[in-house]
Design a protein around this nucleic acid. Structure first.
Lengths: 239, 239
DNA sequence: GACAGGCATTAACATTTGTTAGGGCTGCTT
DNA sequence: AAGCAGCCCTAACAAATGTTAATGCCTGTC
Protein backbone atom coordinates (compact mmCIF):
# COMPACT_ATOMS: atom_id res chain seq x y z
CA UNK A 1 0.00 0.00 0.00
CA UNK A 2 2.83 2.41 0.85
CA UNK A 3 4.91 1.30 -2.09
CA UNK A 4 4.96 4.74 -3.72
CA UNK A 5 6.19 6.33 -0.49
CA UNK A 6 8.97 3.78 -0.16
CA UNK A 7 10.00 4.43 -3.76
CA UNK A 8 9.96 8.15 -3.18
CA UNK A 9 11.94 8.23 0.07
CA UNK A 10 14.10 5.31 -1.00
CA UNK A 11 15.40 7.09 -4.07
CA UNK A 12 17.75 9.21 -1.96
CA UNK A 13 19.09 6.58 0.40
CA UNK A 14 18.38 3.00 1.39
CA UNK A 15 15.27 2.53 3.52
CA UNK A 16 15.45 -0.34 6.00
CA UNK A 17 12.57 -2.69 6.72
CA UNK A 18 12.43 -1.31 10.25
CA UNK A 19 12.05 2.18 8.85
CA UNK A 20 9.33 1.07 6.48
CA UNK A 21 7.54 -0.43 9.45
CA UNK A 22 7.87 2.82 11.38
CA UNK A 23 6.34 4.71 8.50
CA UNK A 24 3.53 2.22 8.17
CA UNK A 25 2.96 2.50 11.89
CA UNK A 26 2.59 6.26 11.66
CA UNK A 27 -0.32 5.91 9.26
CA UNK A 28 -3.84 6.08 10.53
CA UNK A 29 -6.80 6.01 8.19
CA UNK A 30 -7.07 6.39 4.44
CA UNK A 31 -9.49 8.34 2.31
CA UNK A 32 -10.49 9.16 -1.24
CA UNK A 33 -10.90 12.65 -2.62
CA UNK A 34 -12.67 13.52 -5.84
CA UNK A 35 -11.19 15.81 -8.46
CA UNK A 36 -11.52 19.42 -7.38
CA UNK A 37 -11.97 18.65 -3.69
CA UNK A 38 -9.81 20.36 -1.11
CA UNK A 39 -7.57 17.86 0.65
CA UNK A 40 -6.28 20.40 3.16
CA UNK A 41 -7.81 23.81 3.74
CA UNK A 42 -5.78 26.99 3.89
CA UNK A 43 -5.58 28.32 7.43
CA UNK A 44 -6.26 24.95 9.04
CA UNK A 45 -4.04 23.39 11.68
CA UNK A 46 -3.91 19.69 10.78
CA UNK A 47 -2.84 17.13 13.35
CA UNK A 48 -1.78 14.69 10.67
CA UNK A 49 0.14 14.86 7.41
CA UNK A 50 -1.30 13.62 4.17
CA UNK A 51 0.40 11.09 1.93
CA UNK A 52 -0.75 10.63 -1.65
CA UNK A 53 -0.92 6.92 -2.35
CA UNK A 54 -2.23 7.59 -5.81
CA UNK A 55 -3.31 10.66 -7.70
CA UNK A 56 -2.29 14.20 -8.48
CA UNK A 57 -2.73 17.17 -6.14
CA UNK A 58 -1.47 20.71 -5.91
CA UNK A 59 -0.67 23.36 -3.35
CA UNK A 60 -2.23 26.71 -4.14
CA UNK A 61 -2.89 30.20 -2.92
CA UNK A 62 -5.73 32.47 -3.96
CA UNK A 63 -5.41 36.26 -4.13
CA UNK A 64 -8.03 38.87 -3.45
CA UNK A 65 -8.66 39.47 -7.13
CA UNK A 66 -9.52 35.79 -7.48
CA UNK A 67 -6.26 34.82 -9.13
CA UNK A 68 -4.98 31.39 -8.17
CA UNK A 69 -1.38 30.20 -8.21
CA UNK A 70 -0.25 26.64 -7.78
CA UNK A 71 3.01 26.48 -5.87
CA UNK A 72 3.69 22.80 -6.41
CA UNK A 73 2.32 19.66 -7.94
CA UNK A 74 2.26 16.56 -5.78
CA UNK A 75 2.33 13.07 -7.20
CA UNK A 76 1.96 9.56 -5.81
CA UNK A 77 4.33 8.95 -2.94
CA UNK A 78 4.46 12.62 -1.92
CA UNK A 79 3.59 13.97 1.49
CA UNK A 80 1.56 17.02 0.53
CA UNK A 81 1.75 18.69 3.91
CA UNK A 82 4.58 17.15 5.81
CA UNK A 83 5.73 20.70 6.47
CA UNK A 84 2.58 21.31 8.54
CA UNK A 85 4.03 18.89 11.09
CA UNK A 86 6.28 21.76 12.20
CA UNK A 87 4.82 24.83 10.54
CA UNK A 88 1.55 24.03 12.34
CA UNK A 89 -0.68 26.39 10.36
CA UNK A 90 -1.41 25.86 6.67
CA UNK A 91 -0.70 29.06 4.78
CA UNK A 92 -2.09 27.55 1.57
CA UNK A 93 -4.64 25.01 0.43
CA UNK A 94 -4.18 21.65 -1.23
CA UNK A 95 -6.56 20.49 -3.92
CA UNK A 96 -7.01 17.16 -5.69
CA UNK A 97 -6.39 17.50 -9.42
CA UNK A 98 -7.42 13.90 -10.04
CA UNK A 99 -9.17 11.35 -7.87
CA UNK A 100 -6.76 10.98 -4.96
CA UNK A 101 -6.27 8.04 -2.67
CA UNK A 102 -4.55 9.35 0.42
CA UNK A 103 -3.46 8.20 3.86
CA UNK A 104 -2.90 10.23 7.00
CA UNK A 105 0.18 10.13 9.21
CA UNK A 106 -0.45 11.27 12.74
CA UNK A 107 1.77 14.13 13.87
CA UNK A 108 2.28 12.58 17.28
CA UNK A 109 3.70 9.49 15.62
CA UNK A 110 5.88 11.56 13.33
CA UNK A 111 7.15 13.25 16.45
CA UNK A 112 8.01 9.87 17.91
CA UNK A 113 9.99 9.13 14.76
CA UNK A 114 12.00 12.30 15.31
CA UNK A 115 12.69 11.14 18.88
CA UNK A 116 13.68 7.60 18.06
CA UNK A 117 14.67 7.22 14.44
CA UNK A 118 17.23 9.83 13.42
CA UNK A 119 18.01 8.39 10.02
CA UNK A 120 14.36 8.16 9.03
CA UNK A 121 13.88 11.68 10.40
CA UNK A 122 16.63 12.88 8.10
CA UNK A 123 14.95 11.19 5.14
CA UNK A 124 11.65 12.89 5.93
CA UNK A 125 13.46 16.18 6.36
CA UNK A 126 15.18 15.55 3.04
CA UNK A 127 11.81 15.01 1.43
CA UNK A 128 10.81 18.54 2.39
CA UNK A 129 14.18 19.84 1.25
CA UNK A 130 13.62 18.41 -2.21
CA UNK A 131 10.29 20.22 -2.16
CA UNK A 132 12.25 23.40 -1.54
CA UNK A 133 14.66 22.61 -4.36
CA UNK A 134 11.71 22.18 -6.70
CA UNK A 135 10.30 25.50 -5.51
CA UNK A 136 13.60 27.17 -6.36
CA UNK A 137 13.58 25.67 -9.81
CA UNK A 138 10.06 26.97 -10.32
CA UNK A 139 11.14 30.45 -9.26
CA UNK A 140 13.94 30.37 -11.81
CA UNK A 141 11.54 29.15 -14.47
CA UNK A 142 9.01 31.87 -13.70
CA UNK A 143 11.59 34.61 -13.55
CA UNK A 144 14.11 33.90 -16.23
CA UNK A 145 12.98 31.20 -18.63
CA UNK A 146 10.91 31.70 -21.74
CA UNK A 147 7.42 30.34 -21.26
CA UNK A 148 8.10 27.51 -23.68
CA UNK A 149 11.18 26.59 -21.74
CA UNK A 150 9.24 26.80 -18.48
CA UNK A 151 6.63 24.40 -19.78
CA UNK A 152 9.28 22.07 -21.13
CA UNK A 153 10.97 22.14 -17.74
CA UNK A 154 7.73 21.21 -16.04
CA UNK A 155 7.27 18.27 -18.39
CA UNK A 156 10.81 17.08 -17.68
CA UNK A 157 10.36 17.41 -13.94
CA UNK A 158 7.04 15.59 -13.86
CA UNK A 159 8.30 12.83 -16.08
CA UNK A 160 11.30 12.17 -13.86
CA UNK A 161 9.31 12.38 -10.64
CA UNK A 162 6.60 10.09 -11.96
CA UNK A 163 9.19 7.64 -13.23
CA UNK A 164 10.60 7.26 -9.72
CA UNK A 165 7.23 6.13 -8.42
CA UNK A 166 6.52 4.04 -11.52
CA UNK A 167 3.68 6.14 -12.87
CA UNK A 168 5.07 6.51 -16.38
CA UNK A 169 4.31 4.34 -19.36
CA UNK A 170 7.33 4.27 -21.62
CA UNK A 171 7.88 7.90 -22.55
CA UNK A 172 4.30 8.83 -21.70
CA UNK A 173 2.53 9.92 -18.57
CA UNK A 174 -0.93 10.98 -17.64
CA UNK A 175 -1.35 14.67 -16.88
CA UNK A 176 -4.98 15.38 -15.98
CA UNK A 177 -4.61 19.17 -16.00
CA UNK A 178 -6.82 21.49 -17.99
CA UNK A 179 -5.12 24.37 -19.73
CA UNK A 180 -6.68 26.71 -17.18
CA UNK A 181 -5.07 24.71 -14.36
CA UNK A 182 -1.77 24.65 -16.20
CA UNK A 183 -2.05 28.42 -16.53
CA UNK A 184 -2.26 28.57 -12.74
CA UNK A 185 0.99 26.64 -12.58
CA UNK A 186 2.93 28.86 -14.96
CA UNK A 187 1.23 32.07 -13.88
CA UNK A 188 -0.24 32.84 -17.30
CA UNK A 189 -3.62 33.69 -18.75
CA UNK A 190 -5.50 30.77 -20.27
CA UNK A 191 -5.20 32.21 -23.73
CA UNK A 192 -1.46 32.57 -23.52
CA UNK A 193 -1.13 29.15 -21.94
CA UNK A 194 -2.81 27.80 -25.03
CA UNK A 195 -0.30 29.63 -27.22
CA UNK A 196 2.63 28.25 -25.27
CA UNK A 197 1.38 24.68 -25.43
CA UNK A 198 0.86 25.15 -29.14
CA UNK A 199 4.43 26.40 -29.48
CA UNK A 200 5.86 23.40 -27.64
CA UNK A 201 3.76 21.04 -29.74
CA UNK A 202 4.94 22.74 -32.90
CA UNK A 203 8.57 22.12 -32.02
CA UNK A 204 7.65 18.45 -32.16
CA UNK A 205 9.35 17.26 -29.00
CA UNK A 206 6.15 16.22 -27.25
CA UNK A 207 2.80 14.84 -28.18
CA UNK A 208 0.12 16.28 -25.95
CA UNK A 209 -3.42 15.02 -26.27
CA UNK A 210 -6.16 13.55 -24.14
CA UNK A 211 -4.35 14.53 -20.98
CA UNK A 212 -1.49 12.29 -21.94
CA UNK A 213 1.97 13.68 -22.56
CA UNK A 214 4.33 11.66 -24.70
CA UNK A 215 7.92 12.77 -24.95
CA UNK A 216 9.09 12.28 -28.53
CA UNK A 217 12.59 13.71 -28.18
CA UNK A 218 13.82 13.63 -24.60
CA UNK A 219 17.22 15.03 -25.45
CA UNK A 220 15.89 18.08 -27.22
CA UNK A 221 13.16 18.62 -24.65
CA UNK A 222 15.83 18.66 -21.97
CA UNK A 223 17.81 21.16 -24.02
CA UNK A 224 14.85 23.50 -24.44
CA UNK A 225 14.18 23.27 -20.72
CA UNK A 226 17.84 23.42 -19.69
CA UNK A 227 16.78 20.61 -17.41
CA UNK A 228 19.37 19.26 -15.02
CA UNK A 229 17.82 16.76 -12.58
CA UNK A 230 20.52 17.37 -9.97
CA UNK A 231 18.08 19.38 -7.91
CA UNK A 232 15.89 16.34 -7.36
CA UNK A 233 18.69 14.60 -5.40
CA UNK A 234 18.01 11.30 -7.05
CA UNK A 235 21.42 9.93 -6.31
CA UNK A 236 21.31 7.25 -3.67
CA UNK A 237 23.87 8.04 -0.99
CA UNK A 238 24.13 8.10 2.80
CA UNK A 239 22.05 10.93 4.21
CA UNK B 1 28.31 35.96 18.53
CA UNK B 2 25.43 33.65 17.55
CA UNK B 3 22.80 36.05 18.82
CA UNK B 4 21.15 36.46 15.40
CA UNK B 5 20.84 32.69 15.03
CA UNK B 6 19.25 32.36 18.45
CA UNK B 7 16.79 35.13 17.59
CA UNK B 8 15.97 33.48 14.30
CA UNK B 9 15.45 29.95 15.57
CA UNK B 10 13.98 31.14 18.84
CA UNK B 11 11.15 33.03 17.16
CA UNK B 12 9.28 29.79 16.51
CA UNK B 13 9.76 28.06 19.85
CA UNK B 14 11.81 28.46 22.98
CA UNK B 15 15.47 27.56 22.63
CA UNK B 16 17.09 26.15 25.77
CA UNK B 17 20.58 27.04 26.93
CA UNK B 18 21.62 23.46 26.29
CA UNK B 19 20.41 23.78 22.72
CA UNK B 20 22.23 27.05 22.28
CA UNK B 21 25.36 25.33 23.50
CA UNK B 22 24.87 22.49 21.03
CA UNK B 23 24.56 24.98 18.19
CA UNK B 24 27.64 26.84 19.35
CA UNK B 25 29.47 23.54 19.55
CA UNK B 26 28.60 22.72 15.95
CA UNK B 27 30.36 25.84 14.73
CA UNK B 28 33.90 25.67 13.48
CA UNK B 29 35.63 28.68 11.99
CA UNK B 30 34.34 32.03 10.86
CA UNK B 31 35.09 34.05 7.77
CA UNK B 32 34.39 37.33 5.99
CA UNK B 33 33.21 37.63 2.41
CA UNK B 34 33.30 40.82 0.36
CA UNK B 35 30.32 42.06 -1.63
CA UNK B 36 29.98 40.06 -4.81
CA UNK B 37 32.02 37.10 -3.62
CA UNK B 38 30.60 33.60 -3.88
CA UNK B 39 30.01 32.11 -0.44
CA UNK B 40 29.09 28.70 -1.80
CA UNK B 41 29.67 27.56 -5.36
CA UNK B 42 27.01 25.89 -7.44
CA UNK B 43 27.78 22.21 -7.92
CA UNK B 44 29.98 21.97 -4.83
CA UNK B 45 29.49 19.40 -2.08
CA UNK B 46 30.10 21.32 1.14
CA UNK B 47 30.89 19.44 4.35
CA UNK B 48 29.64 22.32 6.47
CA UNK B 49 26.67 24.66 6.44
CA UNK B 50 27.07 28.41 6.43
CA UNK B 51 25.45 30.71 8.94
CA UNK B 52 25.26 34.44 8.29
CA UNK B 53 26.21 36.25 11.46
CA UNK B 54 25.85 39.57 9.70
CA UNK B 55 25.19 40.65 6.16
CA UNK B 56 22.97 39.99 3.19
CA UNK B 57 23.40 37.09 0.77
CA UNK B 58 21.34 35.43 -1.93
CA UNK B 59 20.85 32.06 -3.56
CA UNK B 60 20.95 32.22 -7.33
CA UNK B 61 20.97 30.23 -10.52
CA UNK B 62 22.42 31.30 -13.85
CA UNK B 63 20.96 30.22 -17.18
CA UNK B 64 22.78 29.55 -20.43
CA UNK B 65 21.77 32.90 -21.89
CA UNK B 66 23.46 34.59 -18.95
CA UNK B 67 20.25 35.42 -17.12
CA UNK B 68 20.47 35.22 -13.35
CA UNK B 69 17.64 34.60 -10.92
CA UNK B 70 17.86 34.97 -7.19
CA UNK B 71 15.76 32.33 -5.45
CA UNK B 72 16.02 33.75 -1.97
CA UNK B 73 17.57 36.49 0.09
CA UNK B 74 19.33 35.50 3.28
CA UNK B 75 19.74 37.83 6.20
CA UNK B 76 21.61 37.74 9.51
CA UNK B 77 20.77 34.64 11.50
CA UNK B 78 19.98 32.56 8.39
CA UNK B 79 21.67 29.32 7.47
CA UNK B 80 22.19 29.86 3.77
CA UNK B 81 22.83 26.23 2.93
CA UNK B 82 21.50 24.13 5.77
CA UNK B 83 19.72 22.12 3.09
CA UNK B 84 23.07 20.97 1.74
CA UNK B 85 23.48 18.97 4.94
CA UNK B 86 21.08 16.43 3.41
CA UNK B 87 20.86 17.43 -0.25
CA UNK B 88 24.65 16.99 -0.43
CA UNK B 89 25.16 18.71 -3.77
CA UNK B 90 24.55 22.43 -4.26
CA UNK B 91 22.31 22.96 -7.24
CA UNK B 92 22.74 26.72 -6.98
CA UNK B 93 25.28 29.28 -5.86
CA UNK B 94 25.22 31.69 -2.94
CA UNK B 95 26.64 35.17 -3.28
CA UNK B 96 27.33 37.92 -0.76
CA UNK B 97 25.28 41.03 -1.52
CA UNK B 98 26.99 42.97 1.23
CA UNK B 99 30.09 42.30 3.30
CA UNK B 100 29.18 39.07 5.08
CA UNK B 101 30.46 37.75 8.35
CA UNK B 102 29.74 34.04 8.39
CA UNK B 103 30.42 30.97 10.48
CA UNK B 104 30.53 27.33 9.42
CA UNK B 105 28.68 24.46 11.09
CA UNK B 106 30.24 21.10 10.46
CA UNK B 107 27.89 18.55 8.90
CA UNK B 108 29.18 15.78 11.13
CA UNK B 109 28.20 17.82 14.18
CA UNK B 110 24.82 18.62 12.70
CA UNK B 111 24.40 14.92 12.24
CA UNK B 112 25.17 14.38 15.89
CA UNK B 113 22.45 16.88 16.73
CA UNK B 114 19.96 14.84 14.72
CA UNK B 115 21.05 11.75 16.66
CA UNK B 116 20.90 13.29 20.12
CA UNK B 117 18.76 16.41 20.16
CA UNK B 118 15.36 15.78 18.59
CA UNK B 119 13.83 19.10 19.53
CA UNK B 120 16.72 21.12 18.20
CA UNK B 121 16.64 18.95 15.09
CA UNK B 122 13.01 19.87 14.61
CA UNK B 123 13.84 23.54 14.96
CA UNK B 124 16.55 23.26 12.33
CA UNK B 125 14.18 21.34 10.10
CA UNK B 126 11.60 24.05 10.70
CA UNK B 127 14.10 26.66 9.63
CA UNK B 128 14.33 25.00 6.21
CA UNK B 129 10.55 24.67 6.10
CA UNK B 130 10.14 28.41 6.55
CA UNK B 131 12.58 28.76 3.67
CA UNK B 132 10.15 26.68 1.64
CA UNK B 133 7.19 28.78 2.74
CA UNK B 134 9.03 31.88 1.58
CA UNK B 135 9.75 30.20 -1.74
CA UNK B 136 6.05 29.51 -2.18
CA UNK B 137 5.20 33.11 -1.46
CA UNK B 138 7.73 34.18 -4.06
CA UNK B 139 6.17 31.85 -6.61
CA UNK B 140 2.76 33.37 -5.95
CA UNK B 141 4.21 36.85 -6.24
CA UNK B 142 5.95 36.06 -9.53
CA UNK B 143 2.95 34.33 -11.01
CA UNK B 144 -0.08 36.27 -9.90
CA UNK B 145 0.80 39.59 -8.33
CA UNK B 146 1.31 42.85 -10.14
CA UNK B 147 4.95 43.86 -10.13
CA UNK B 148 4.24 46.72 -7.75
CA UNK B 149 2.53 44.34 -5.39
CA UNK B 150 5.42 41.89 -5.72
CA UNK B 151 7.91 44.54 -4.78
CA UNK B 152 5.72 45.72 -1.90
CA UNK B 153 5.52 42.13 -0.69
CA UNK B 154 9.28 41.81 -0.76
CA UNK B 155 9.65 44.97 1.30
CA UNK B 156 7.15 43.65 3.85
CA UNK B 157 8.87 40.31 4.07
CA UNK B 158 12.33 41.75 4.48
CA UNK B 159 11.19 44.24 7.06
CA UNK B 160 9.59 41.54 9.20
CA UNK B 161 12.50 39.15 8.85
CA UNK B 162 15.02 41.84 9.66
CA UNK B 163 12.99 42.98 12.63
CA UNK B 164 13.19 39.50 14.15
CA UNK B 165 16.97 39.65 14.14
CA UNK B 166 17.01 43.30 15.18
CA UNK B 167 18.40 44.70 11.95
CA UNK B 168 15.75 47.37 11.50
CA UNK B 169 15.92 50.96 12.64
CA UNK B 170 12.43 52.17 13.43
CA UNK B 171 10.54 51.71 10.18
CA UNK B 172 13.73 51.73 8.12
CA UNK B 173 16.16 49.05 7.04
CA UNK B 174 19.25 48.91 4.94
CA UNK B 175 18.82 47.19 1.57
CA UNK B 176 22.14 47.22 -0.26
CA UNK B 177 20.72 45.96 -3.56
CA UNK B 178 21.27 47.70 -6.86
CA UNK B 179 18.27 47.90 -9.15
CA UNK B 180 19.91 45.34 -11.40
CA UNK B 181 20.14 42.91 -8.46
CA UNK B 182 16.58 43.65 -7.50
CA UNK B 183 15.58 42.88 -11.08
CA UNK B 184 17.17 39.46 -10.62
CA UNK B 185 14.95 38.95 -7.60
CA UNK B 186 11.69 39.87 -9.32
CA UNK B 187 12.66 38.41 -12.68
CA UNK B 188 12.45 41.70 -14.56
CA UNK B 189 14.62 43.73 -16.87
CA UNK B 190 16.54 46.53 -15.21
CA UNK B 191 14.54 49.16 -17.05
CA UNK B 192 11.25 47.76 -15.91
CA UNK B 193 12.54 47.30 -12.40
CA UNK B 194 13.25 50.99 -12.37
CA UNK B 195 9.68 51.72 -13.50
CA UNK B 196 8.24 49.52 -10.77
CA UNK B 197 10.31 51.12 -8.03
CA UNK B 198 9.21 54.50 -9.34
CA UNK B 199 5.59 53.39 -9.19
CA UNK B 200 5.91 52.23 -5.59
CA UNK B 201 7.63 55.45 -4.64
CA UNK B 202 4.90 57.44 -6.32
CA UNK B 203 2.22 55.78 -4.22
CA UNK B 204 4.03 57.30 -1.28
CA UNK B 205 4.10 54.29 1.05
CA UNK B 206 7.88 53.96 1.10
CA UNK B 207 10.85 56.19 0.90
CA UNK B 208 13.65 54.51 -0.98
CA UNK B 209 17.00 56.23 -1.24
CA UNK B 210 20.66 55.53 -0.56
CA UNK B 211 19.99 51.84 -0.19
CA UNK B 212 17.74 52.56 2.74
CA UNK B 213 14.05 51.70 2.69
CA UNK B 214 11.75 53.57 5.02
CA UNK B 215 8.18 52.43 5.34
CA UNK B 216 5.93 55.48 5.54
CA UNK B 217 2.57 53.71 5.63
CA UNK B 218 2.87 50.13 6.85
CA UNK B 219 -0.86 49.48 6.69
CA UNK B 220 -1.23 50.54 3.09
CA UNK B 221 1.99 48.83 2.04
CA UNK B 222 0.66 45.61 3.51
CA UNK B 223 -2.58 46.13 1.62
CA UNK B 224 -0.83 46.66 -1.70
CA UNK B 225 1.25 43.55 -1.05
CA UNK B 226 -1.63 41.51 0.37
CA UNK B 227 0.99 40.62 2.95
CA UNK B 228 0.01 38.09 5.60
CA UNK B 229 3.01 37.09 7.73
CA UNK B 230 1.47 33.76 8.70
CA UNK B 231 3.80 31.98 6.30
CA UNK B 232 6.81 33.04 8.33
CA UNK B 233 5.60 31.00 11.32
CA UNK B 234 6.54 33.67 13.76
CA UNK B 235 4.21 32.45 16.46
CA UNK B 236 6.08 30.89 19.33
CA UNK B 237 4.58 27.48 20.08
CA UNK B 238 5.80 23.96 20.81
CA UNK B 239 7.35 22.42 17.72
C1' DG C 1 -32.36 14.33 -30.52
C1' DA C 2 -32.06 19.03 -28.14
C1' DC C 3 -29.62 21.25 -24.99
C1' DA C 4 -26.26 23.05 -21.55
C1' DG C 5 -21.69 23.20 -19.76
C1' DG C 6 -16.85 22.63 -19.87
C1' DC C 7 -12.88 22.88 -22.53
C1' DA C 8 -9.64 24.02 -26.45
C1' DT C 9 -8.82 27.23 -29.87
C1' DT C 10 -8.50 31.58 -32.42
C1' DA C 11 -8.93 36.65 -33.48
C1' DA C 12 -8.55 41.50 -32.47
C1' DC C 13 -7.07 44.64 -29.59
C1' DA C 14 -5.05 46.62 -25.06
C1' DT C 15 -1.51 46.55 -21.73
C1' DT C 16 2.70 45.15 -19.82
C1' DT C 17 7.35 44.21 -20.29
C1' DG C 18 11.79 43.99 -22.85
C1' DT C 19 15.47 46.12 -25.82
C1' DT C 20 18.44 49.47 -27.27
C1' DA C 21 20.32 53.72 -26.65
C1' DG C 22 21.66 57.69 -24.11
C1' DG C 23 22.19 61.37 -20.43
C1' DG C 24 23.55 62.62 -15.95
C1' DC C 25 25.47 61.80 -11.56
C1' DT C 26 28.98 60.02 -8.32
C1' DG C 27 33.25 58.24 -6.82
C1' DC C 28 37.62 56.59 -8.08
C1' DT C 29 42.01 56.53 -10.70
C1' DT C 30 45.49 58.55 -13.32
C1' DA D 1 41.52 68.17 -14.25
C1' DA D 2 40.47 64.38 -17.29
C1' DG D 3 38.90 60.02 -17.84
C1' DC D 4 36.52 55.95 -16.51
C1' DA D 5 33.16 52.80 -14.39
C1' DG D 6 28.96 51.92 -12.09
C1' DC D 7 24.53 53.21 -11.20
C1' DC D 8 19.98 55.56 -11.70
C1' DC D 9 16.87 57.26 -14.85
C1' DT D 10 14.36 58.18 -19.32
C1' DA D 11 12.79 57.77 -24.21
C1' DA D 12 11.35 55.29 -28.26
C1' DC D 13 10.24 51.35 -30.10
C1' DA D 14 9.61 46.09 -30.25
C1' DA D 15 7.93 41.91 -28.37
C1' DA D 16 5.41 39.35 -25.05
C1' DT D 17 1.32 38.76 -22.55
C1' DG D 18 -3.48 39.87 -21.07
C1' DT D 19 -8.49 40.76 -22.15
C1' DT D 20 -12.61 40.10 -24.32
C1' DA D 21 -15.26 37.73 -27.29
C1' DA D 22 -16.57 34.22 -30.40
C1' DT D 23 -16.42 29.45 -32.43
C1' DG D 24 -16.38 24.54 -32.40
C1' DC D 25 -16.06 20.21 -30.17
C1' DC D 26 -17.03 17.13 -26.75
C1' DT D 27 -19.97 14.87 -23.09
C1' DG D 28 -23.62 14.17 -20.07
C1' DT D 29 -28.64 15.19 -19.16
C1' DC D 30 -33.32 15.48 -20.06
Amino acid sequence: MLESLYLNLGQHDALSDAEKALLAGAMTFERHFATGQDIVASGSRPTYSTLILDGLAARYKVLENGGRQFTSLQVSGDFVDLHAFLLKTMDHGIVALSPCHVMFADHSRLRTITEQAPHLTRLLWLDTLVDGAIHREWIVAMGRRSKTSHLAHLVCELFVRLQVVQRTNGMSFHLPLSQAELADVLGLSVVHMNRVIGALRKVGVVNWANHTVTILDWHRLQEIAEFDPTYLSMMREPR
